[in-house]
Design a protein around this nucleic acid. Structure first.
Length: 423
RNA sequence: GUGGGUGUAGCUCAGUUGGUAGAGCCCCUGGUUGUGGCCCAGGUGGUCGUGGGUUCAAGUCCCAUCACUCACCCCA
């Protein structure tokens, strides 16, 4: 028996109503704020991800599904393709490629779909996982960041999730980060011998990540480390102040998390993650931030942008714990008895469906008792019983499964009657 | 990539010192010559993850492998 790929999964019909509800809730909310859906390809040239996410990040170094477009042929760099590990790079690429910055550069996008990262599977972590993404291009305003965080909070609230926490930090900008980086590197070098193996590597390539290390020895060594947030330039400090003040005005709960450093290199200034208790180690249900340099870095004009990604799988798990999704039940089950009745009833079933009545019918030749059992099991509100007697008398029996009340429905205009009654 | 735990019926799980498989739920049939949920009776369903090994005999012991799972790591 062929099994599905490790870290991949089927989302079965019993889970789909939940996924649909989450997606509909998100779409409704995002569109209210002027976000428009964009659909991007599932693969891009590897170079796009390498350049945007960062050559030295874990995602690019060891987690991407990359392959040669043509086997055996002489390989050029641009023939290496990668299954998208995140959405932002593609959206930026599309924004630049279609010159969407011309005219009004302000655009708000959202998208949803699968992403691929080859990590060891775990609770809330899959190799094919789904994200809901939102991005704002064309404004450097701190209020754009606030809008994103507020949307996330509201989305969670609408889905009945209220015990999450927004973690907030600022990563500075090209004006202030280099100086801080030097300060930090000096601090780290002074106690490098106490750091773990990974941090030994990180300290030169990406020293900010040392702050984020979970190893106890590293945490202890870094307790007195200089904080980026204390070394911001004036512009970054003002930006961050507006973010925090505005969130407070809106009563959006947040905590400052000075150690919040994200794993993608393109972030600047505001970064945030939404955390939850119920997912074990994979506590981040959403994350994002500002990436003012990315559009330009990928060959576009200098245009600021900000965005977030929600872990759909994780969100679905949280929401499912709060309120299990209701299984949709049909309004009507048609129970014909005998060949002739079935032949007569089948067109009713087709027409009722066309008229929008959710219904089902027994297509085999089961006993009425078996049919009633099935109607009950699938939660049908009504059952239409039709056998020889009913055909002779010219009226079928409509049974209300809750009250057990039965009424005769004349075969003439039967479909119209049922549509009026149940539709 | 590293470590721990777990793999027996569709699902949740028993299986005692090795003696060639069981329960509950689900499903099907009947108890009601054409009426569901409760109850009663009967029934379908498993090469015990896979491959080797030890043994007269392996679900049970040994090795390997795969999968799931949790954690590290990373992130959504």
């Amino acid at each position: 028996m062929i099994q599905l790929i490790r870290g991949f999964r089927d989302i079965l019909p019993s889970d789909v109503p939940l996924w649909q509800r989450i997606e509909q809730t998100a779409v409704e909310l995002f569109e209210a704020y002027g976000f428009a859906e964009i659909r991007i390809p599932i693969m891009e040239k590897t170079e796009l991800f390498a350049r945007s996410i960062g050559e030295t990040t874990d995602i690019v170094e060891k987690e991407m599904y990359t392959f040669a477009d043509r086997q055996g042929a002489k390989q050029k760099a641009d023939e290496l393709l990668t299954l998208r590990p995140e959405a932002t790079a593609s959206i930026v690429r599309a924004y630049i490629q279609h010159k969407m910055y011309a005219g009004d550069p302000l655009h708000k996008f959202y998208m949803t779909g699968p992403m691929f990262r080859r990590e060891r599977p775990q609770k809330g972590r899959y190799r094919q996982f789904y994200q809901i993404d939102a991005e704002i291009f064309g404004t450097g305003s701190a209020y754009a960041d606030v809008l994103l965080i507020s949307m996330l909070t509201e989305l969670l609230r609408r889905l009945g999730v209220d015990d999450t926490k927004a973690h907030l930090n600022s990563l500075g900008c090209p004006e202030c980060r280099p100086a801080y980086r030097e300060t930090l590197t000096a601090y780290i070098d002074a106690r490098a011998d106490r750091l773990c193996e990974d941090c030994q590597r990180r300290k030169t390539r990406n020293p900010l990540r040392v702050l984020d290390c979970k190893v106890t020895a590293c945490r202890e060594a870094m307790t007195q480390a200089p904080e980026l947030i204390d070394h911001l330039c004036d512009a970054c400090r003002d930006h961050f102040a507006i973010v925090t003040e505005s969130l407070a005005d809106l009563s959006v709960p947040y905590v400052l998390d000075k150690r919040l450093v994200r794993g993608l290199d393109y972030y600047t200034r505001t970064t945030f993650e939404i955390h939850t208790e119920v997912l074990g180690a994979q506590s981040a249900v959403a994350g994002g931030g500002r990436y003012d340099g990315l559009v330009e870095a990928l060959g576009g004009p200098s245009i600021p942008a900000s965005g977030f990604a929600i872990g759909f799988d994780r969100l679905a798990e949280i929401v499912a714990q709060k309120q299990p999704a209701a299984v949709p039940a049909p309004a009507l089950f048609i129970a014909p008895i005998g060949e002739e009745a079935r032949a007569r009833a089948f067109p009713w079933f087709i027409e009722l469906g066309q008229a929008g009545v959710t219904c089902d019918i027994e297509m085999g030749g089961k006993s009425l008792k078996a049919q009633m059992k099935r109607a009950n099991r699938i939660g049908a509100a009504h059952v239409l019983i039709v056998g020889e007697t009913e055909l002779v008398q010219g009226a079928a029996i409509l049974r209300d499964m809750n009250t057990k009340a039965q009424q005769a429905v004349p075969l003439e205009r039967l479909v119209a009657t049922l549509v009026a009654e149940l539709g």
